[in-house]
Write a protein that binds this DNA or RNA. Structure first.
Lengths: 144, 144
DNA sequence: ATCATAATTAGAATAATTCCAAATTTTGGC
DNA sequence: GCCAAAATTTGGAATTATTCTAATTATGAT
């Protein structure tokens, strides 16, 4: 797994021609650059609007295609809050999401050091987790 | 908060004319009875199909209306897995959901005794959680 | 019973996402 | 570089879950 989380304000040209076995086409590069650029958990449509700045010919269908390719190759993460439209996040480390109800902003929330899921959930032996999503809403604190 | 989780195979007539400040109409009773009856986390459409057995004139719009009324009055819970259609759960106790990828079945998963969210998440001081959803997918174990 | 309010209904509308088939681009072999 | 095959992109149509709308019906209070 390659984490690009540290890459800020990247140009599409910064990416190699292949990432995680996925061919990085112009469009995929652009979509990835958008997601790494402004880390506000944009929706597919947000990505589309932003990508058009640099690449006016890109289509929404392509944005969806690129997002699905990036997600399935674990280059970005798909984030859901209830039935709202999906959002996209370049942070691949173990974390979950908090949506502040006042501002609408989404914050990454990390686990306390060393805690594992099995420590707090009553799961039967032999359970294999392939996907986990934790979504919180409320007022996000200011201090600490 | 009134938990009806222990009520199995209820008839619609079993419910009082008001619950949690919500007027229990014929349709709301029926929808609630369906959800308490077969606890397989049905979708709105599943509820609609089942409710029609006893009440052939009920409409899908009404099922959606009833579900939203029951959810907002905290009589049932709405459950989401990524962008799949919402499901409904009569268990109001603190728990989360595991979807077995082989069978498609959804299991309730409880927290280990005494664990609190704040124990495993790094949340800033002053954070107020109004809504929490934890969804897991994978192979659900058989033992224990 | 009358009235005002709330709930139900069928069908239309919406929004996010996926599908489709054609056009374009990329790739690897020569 | 040239060509065929494969992959990707594109615009638009289709799909799906859900919400909205406007008309009808039921309810509860007086």
């Amino acid at each position: 797994m390659i984490s690009l989380d540290h890459v800020h304000d990247p140009k599409p040209e910064d990416f190699p021609s292949e990432l995680e076995g996925l061919r990085m086409t112009k469009q995929r590069r652009e979509v990835l650059a958008v997601i790494l650029g402004e880390r506000d958990h944009p929706t597919a449509n947000d990505v589309f609007v932003r990508a058009k700045d640099r690449m006016p010919t890109i289509s929404l269908a392509t944005v969806y295609n690129c997002l699905e390719a990036l997600v399935s190759h674990q280059i970005v993460r798909q984030v859901n809050f209830e039935r709202e439209s999906s959002r996209y996040c370049p942070n691949l480390s173990d974390h979950c999401h908090f949506q502040d109800e006042e501002s609408g902003k989404i914050h990454d929330v990390v686990f306390k050091d060393g805690v594992k899921l099995e420590d707090f959930l009553e799961l039967p032996q032999g359970t294999e987790i392939s996907h986990l999503e934790i979504s919180l809403k409320g007022q996000f604190g200011t201090q600490k």
